[in-house]
Every structure is written in structure tokens, then in C-alpha cells.
Simulated scan of single mutants.
Amino acid sequence: MDNKEYKEYTAADFLNDPDFLLWCLDPDKREDLFWSEFPANHPETFAEFRKAIQTVGSVRLNNFTLEEGEKAELYDSIMSDYRALCSRRRLLRRRLFALAAAAVVAAGVVVPALLGVFRPPTETDASPARASEIRLISGRQSEHIASESASIECAPSGEVRINGRKIASAKPARMNRLVVPEGKRADITLSDGSRVWINSGSVFTFPAAFGEGERRVSIEGELYIDVTPDPERPFIVHNALFDTRVLGTSFDVNAYCDSNRPASVVLVHGAVEITTGDGEQVQLESNDMFSLKAGNYTVVKVDPSQYVSWKDGLFTFSSGTLERVIAQIAAYYRVEIVCDPDVRELCCSGKLVLFDDLSDTLDVLSDILPINCRIEQRPDGTRAVCVTARTN
């Protein structure tokens, strides 16, 4: 812990640092002394350090009421677990973290006697599935970013900085591609001040700097964007199925190349206009979700937080099923997951932290639900996950 290089740490780096998380959730004296003195010893990272603390502090257990008998049963269960785990400090800490980050309540119901198979999005020439590092591609230059997340800033002059480090300037009119592989995320501040978060397994195409006309970017995968208002220069997010046109607003676009899932737009606030490939125009208001599949679309009201929390490294669920949780994990890590019918309808509410390593996320899920998750390596080099009911 003392030997780590924290000089260039971002909030995302802190949230992926086991020492920092353990201090937030279950500190001992040594950790408390180190992190309490951290702001004074590392003033250059204080803003990101504070942001990470606020993020951890925002994660709370869901509120729900139990009958007295249920409370007694829950207490006995907790004490039984505590006695079994008190001699195993490491596992106890992981459970504490799991409880703080993902309060999941499980209840089994009757389900169809079929296995649920969730397949990763189809690979394309952009190949985020084949990449192991985040890549920024500009013309013939390709900048590989070894960190688990990347924060990129673009200036109107074409200057680009990655995690605070300046790289060679690009021509303002040149289109760049940001490739984000499975299990990683990136955020980018565009030349007009608009901020974009790019999800796992995505390719984001954007100009080094916007010109005087409309501002146009494209996405294959998922992004969340907070657009800087400019009535003279409308902002357009393009994907293979539709265009989303805005003047100034925040929304999420999910457009993976996967015929098994609908493409969607979730509008957090403001107003947008969607133009489908058939030329049909659809107006959205705050809290609207537009979904398009097989040429047909729907618009429904939703809680946007359940669809955009991934940008903060979390999945948020409210009375959802394990089937839905597994589907989102499969899409995020671009891995096939086979779910046993005995557990598909387990009810899940809370927040699940997305670790960089799939196995860590599955470990947390296994700790708080009566399931086993087994990762299998296939002969072709791909991975598959089997989720079954816990038998012991």
C-alpha cells in the first residue's frame, strides 16, 4: 500500500483499489492512519480521492420492512455466517464489501424448464472483443492505454490528453476511434465540453475537434453523454439503426451489434429526437426509454438510474430477476453465460460493483446469492460461465 504510485490516480482507480475499498468499508488502525493522512501526503489527487469517497458513500442498502419472525431468522443466519467466517478475515471482508455494494434479496419461484443462454454481442471489424487494452486510434497512429479505465480530454486545437498525459495533436477534422474492450470503461471530454462515458465492448467515433456545423459522433455499443448546449450546432449520435438529435441534454444510447437485444435510448433529462433507418421520427421526454428491435419500436417510462449507473462502475437493480442481472453481466464482459432454470427468477434489488476481472464480480454475486458460478475455458480460447443453484 505504501509503495503504490498514487500521483496519477483517478476516482475510478481508487474505486478499483482493494486497499482503498477495504479502508472505506472495514478499516483497521494501519489503514485508517494511512488513508486519513493521504490528502496531506498526496494533494495532487485530493479531488479524485474525495470523488471516490463520495461514490462509495452513495452506495447504500435498500430499505425494506421485515416481520419480527423474519428479523429473528435473518439475525440467526447472520450470526451463523459470522461464527463460520470470523477466522477467515479475507472472505469476511469480501462479504462486507458485497453487502455494502450489492444488497440482493433472493426468493425462488417456478420457472420454465429450459436453460437461459445469454450470448455476447457479435464481433465486428472494430473488434473490441479481441482487444485487451483501451485503444485510441487516429489515422495510422494507435495509442494503447494499459490502465483499467481511461479519461481523455480533447481541446478545440486538436490536442489530446489521456489520463492527464499529452499525446501528439491530431488534425481537428480527423475522425478518431476509441475502442473499449470487455470489462473496461472510458470517459472523454469532447472539444465542445460535452462529456461522454463509453461502456465495455464499445467503439466510439468522434472528431478531434468540432467544426462550425452540426456536431456528429457515432457509437457501436453503449455510451452515456452529457451534451453541452449549443442551439447553433445540434448534436447527433449515430448508430447503425437510428440517429439521436439533441441541443443539450443527458441520455444513454445502447446499440450493440446483437440481434438478441433491442437497441435503446434512455433520456435522463431534456429532449431528443430519434430518426430511425426508415425515416420515422420519435420525440422523447425525460425518463422515456425508446427501444427498437426488428424494425418495431416502443417508448415507455423508466427509472433512468437503473440504465445509466454502469458509468459509475455499478449495475443497479430494483426487484429485477437474476436472469436480467446475468444478461447485463454477459453483455458487459462479452461472455456467454448459461443460467440454470432453478435460479433464473431469483429476485434481485440493489447495486452490484463491476470489477475489472469477471471472476471478482462473480465471486461477489456468489457470496450474496445461493448460486455457484463456474468459468469454463473453451478450446477456441473463449470463456463461458455456468450459473447453478448452490447445493451446500
Rank of each mutant, 00 (worst) to 15 (best):
K4A: 15
Y9S: 01
A11Q: 13
D13Q: 03
D17L: 12
L21K: 09
L25F: 04
D26H: 06
R30Q: 14
D32G: 06
E37Y: 04
P39C: 03
E44D: 15
T45K: 00
R50V: 06
T55K: 15
T55A: 15
T65W: 13
L74W: 06
S80N: 14
D81P: 03
A84Q: 11
S87H: 12
S87M: 11
R88Q: 07
L91C: 08
R93L: 05
L96F: 03
V110N: 11
D125A: 15
S127A: 15
R130W: 01
E133H: 11
R135K: 12
I137W: 03
S138E: 10
S138C: 12
E143M: 08
S147N: 08
S149R: 08
A155N: 05
I167M: 12
A168R: 12
S169H: 04
A170I: 01
P172M: 13
E182Y: 07
D187R: 11
S202W: 05
F206L: 05
F206Q: 00
F210S: 08
G211R: 07
E214T: 10
R215T: 04
V217C: 04
D226Q: 12
D226I: 09
V227P: 09
R233P: 05
V237P: 00
V237C: 02
A255M: 04
C257A: 15
S259K: 10
S259Y: 02
V265R: 00
H269E: 14
V272D: 01
E273H: 03
T275L: 10
T276G: 12
G277D: 12
G279C: 14
G279R: 12
A294I: 05
Y297A: 04
S305T: 03
F315N: 09
E323F: 07
A330M: 10
R334V: 03
G350A: 07
L354P: 00
F355C: 13
I368Y: 03
L369M: 11
L369N: 00
N372H: 08
N372L: 11
N372A: 10
R374G: 01
E376G: 06
E376F: 04
Q377H: 12
C386M: 15
V387K: 07
A389L: 15
R390W: 06
T391Q: 14
N392A: 13
